[in-house]
Amino acid sequence: MVESVQPILTVPAEVGTPKPNPILVVDCLERSFDGLKAVDIDHLEIERGVVTSLIGPNGAGKTTLFNLLSGFEQADKGRWQFDGQPATHTSPDKLARRGMIRTFQLTKSLSKLTVLDNVLLGAPDQQGERLWAAPFQSKWQQQEQANRQRAEELLERFNLTHMCHELAGTLSGGQRKLLEVARALMANPVLIMLDEPMAGVNPALGQSLMRHITQLAFEGVSVVFIEHAMEVVTGLSDWIVVLAQGQVIAEGPPWKVIHDEAVVDAYLGGQQENRQR
């Protein structure tokens, strides 16, 4: 398979640099908690159809940024666009219907629904979710069958087939992470935002999850994920954005970012100090 050189590779590694085909454009975004600026971003663009990872030390504002962009938290100021359309002050469910699907750091698996039902819930535009159509199975059965087939395929990819009819509450922490990713994929995302998808997942499954993520980008889905482990990030991402104290301190392709002084100071430096102790 011959891949053409991705346009993202021609972008200079500078904070706030414009991208050739951005899926997300953020301007002057601010959010404070008790006077402490959790997120303070002048300008940030996320490229379409590639894997972007968001890294930074604990408390850097990564999850808050996710919450703001996906509508789960209100920004103090700022505006952003998703897929060319304004996305400021938009409810999370509306953004999700436009194709911005996110997962959560603390998994939100629906304990008393079966694993299969969890995934089926993700399917978009379901006829049977309308009150008027719901009592009449004939109106939604065909779509439900098709969704079911797709859900079962997804569960198989994430090694959850054997748990299909179990309640999601019986899954282990790692399995719940996978379930959440499967559910998010079921929603046919344009942009998928994964909050620490590898945390607690066993390494073999983590590998397969990563392959899946790269495959997604290859299929044209934009991926942003938060991750702690630097080695995971470098092997997987096309672009890395580094946050520290709510600000973007560096961005660029992996091989450039890991040598960036500011990054080494703020993030890797901190880790190395910890190791020396």
Partner: peptide
């Protein structure tokens, strides 16, 4: 039922 279990999860799926 998804709303009963976790309404933010339901929201995040549209």
């Amino acid at each position: 039922k998804s709303i009963r279990e976790d309404q933010d999860a339901a929201r995040s799926l549209g």
